[in-house]
Nucleic acid binder design. Structure first.
Lengths: 342, 342
DNA sequence: AAGGCAGATGGTAGCGCTACCCATGACGCC
DNA sequence: GGCGTCATGGGTAGCGCTACCATCTGCCTT
């Protein structure tokens, strides 16, 4: 009376089956798969033959329990549809697809509380690394990240006080550079238009303000913002508001490219000449900025690269090779185009 | 000489700690958390007090191992940056954020082989449900889905032979409706422009062709496609090609909105009147279609709703309440706008 | 020749939880 | 009064894997 091989497991082969078939101990199979260098050539071959024949795939849950470490990267972004984060995610994904790490996704909806909740969900599972967007965690989130016991990479921005590592660029400098460019080109009454003013947007606005003040051009009425999520539609509406408020407006620095596109379309619709009557600068440099007519000046941000590098740094840290410099600024690039060429 | 509470666990409280503190058995704690109805009011209160006091959070890995079921939804999409899938993902995410399910993301890069690989990675972990984009799985992928032992929802499209459940709409009908609209409006030499012709794009093209043939307008030279991934830039280039090939072109049905936007910008740039000289129709109806100048006719697709419904159906199936009708067609909607209003 | 040491392999004992089965007591039924 | 049934709770035995330590071999050192 043989007892059933497994009550619940659905009959999938286990490491013990492989070990039996290969005539070795289970632990040796485990090693052959995880640290091949520590098993002799001969046994390794035998074991792999057994693995192939049985179609054995290790159970990640059992692995996670036994080693107190899941092969999972937790990734927290504030939005799934914002193409900026989609590209970061793509970078993360592409850098991880060769490895056996899985990606677990969290959407914070730009909410610190939601971020805390997600970290509390991710933590007990002991992820291999955590990648979170932004550097403005709540004290609670920060504590959760610090005690997560795994590498943490804050992305999209750089700052002075990393939880662990950081990859990003300075939004303040980006906003400043965009604004300075418009000032140099001869624009004077330059508005700032922004939706959903998250901390990064706030810092771009601060950069705008610094540039305007330095040039003696600052005027609070030039700023038009809303807490509503960003969209092309909203760009049009905010531009109308801005123009109604300041009819002498001769340029706009848009907090992102969606807004800039909305502004451009509204200019078309209202027959406002771009760049002659109104200059437009966006932020992020999405693909379409170059194709638009007129093409739109924007700040190119290294989103995909941020994703890739964050993974590279996390993997290095997992391997015990922490980078010398935990904070990496990937910079940005001003792309001057027709929309500010007068 | 008390032996250390835990060699590897990092000292986090376990279910045994809670049980001891509450003066009950471990299994009762487990039940109180998972099936509160089966534990008396009194004990439940005691247990929750102990849980709160200790800050106990169940270990999802141990849970998954013991119950042979991980609280994870596996989601496979062909692209992270295509905003169509980003919105499906958002729908999935929003419907799952109240539950304790986590989301594990896979990017197939429009590759059947990669899809197979990912299913092989997801399977051993015994996810609670799998949501995959598309209905054109390889035979191997299909087998993996069928033997996954969990609810499976194929999304974005409907078809006759679901692995388990399906939520989507007919791309053929969408392509046909868009083309018929243009024919009715008076366009005759209507081109089809498409990038990365995945199976869904192929079916939209088939719909276009059916409509053109029915009207006696079909001409193979009107079709311009490329395997390159879609982008606004590409839309412009393909439109140039199309126009060079067929100078009498008087309209284009674009396989998606990115392409349509590229076409619109090129028309602006080349001073081609829209909708007078060229009519434009897109597909998906992204936010910006309505704001564009002229606004662009498009087929609105229920992407967010697809995400939400797919989760609702999966959750129902997990709870043992399989829907009567496993295939749900959410339809689409033609949005007529200025770009075809002549 | 004894000791030391590194490399290769295995055995044992969990990791933290839940499936399965059983114990107990209260209640209702014939 | 015997017995089934239900509600409530607990004990035991894993789930499939890996950490930890032990063992064994061969070879080098002195």
């Amino acid at each position: 009376m043989t007892k059933p091989r497994s009550r619940r497991g659905g009959g999938r082969p286990t490491i013990a089956d492989v070990a039996r078939k290969a005539g070795v101990g289970a632990i040796t199979v485990s090693r052959a798969l995880r640290e091949p260098g520590r098993v002799s050539e001969d046994l390794r071959r035998q074991i792999h033959a057994a693995v192939d024949e049985l179609g054995y795939l290790p159970d990640p849950n059992a692995r996670a329990l036994a080693s107190a470490r899941a092969e999972v990267f937790g990734v927290l972004v504030p939005s799934l549809t914002n193409s900026v984060f989609a590209e970061v995610l793509r970078g993360i994904y592409d850098s991880l697809s060769d490895s056996s790490y899985r990606i677990q996704l969290g959407n914070t909806h730009y909410s610190g509380l939601e971020e805390e909740r997600l970290l509390q969900v991710f933590g007990p599972q002991r992820p291999a690394a955590l990648i979170v967007a932004g550097i403005d965690q709540t004290p609670m989130s920060r504590r959760l990240l610090e005690t997560a016991g795994c590498p943490v990479v804050q992305v999209m921005e750089t700052g002075p006080d990393p939880v662990d590592m950081m990859v990003g660029f300075s939004h303040f400098d980006g906003g400043k550079a965009a604004t300075e460019h418009m000032i140099e080109t001869g624009y004077r009454r330059i508005g700032f238009i922004g939706a959903r003013m998250d901390p990064r947007s706030q810092r771009r606005l601060a950069g705008y303000r610094a540039a305007m003040e330095a040039a003696g051009l600052f005027d609070a009425r030039l700023i038009t913002t809303t807490p509503v999520p960003s969209s092309v539609t909203l760009g049009r509406e905010l531009f109308r508001d801005a123009l109604a408020k300041v009819p002498t407006l001769d340029g706009v620095f848009c907090n992102n490219d969606d807004i800039a596109l909305g502004v451009l379309f509204e200019c078309h619709r209202a027959s406002i000449a771009v760049p002659k009557t109104i200059g437009i600068t966006g932020f992020n440099d999405l693909d379409m900025m170059e194709v638009a007519f007129p093409s739109i000046t924007s700040i190119r941000t290294p989103r995909y690269e941020i994703g890739r590098l964050s993974v590279a740094m996390a993997l290095a840290a997992i391997a015990g090779k922490r980078p010398q410099e935990p904070v990496v600024d990937l910079g940005f690039e001003l792309r001057c185009r027709e929309s500010t060429a007068r």
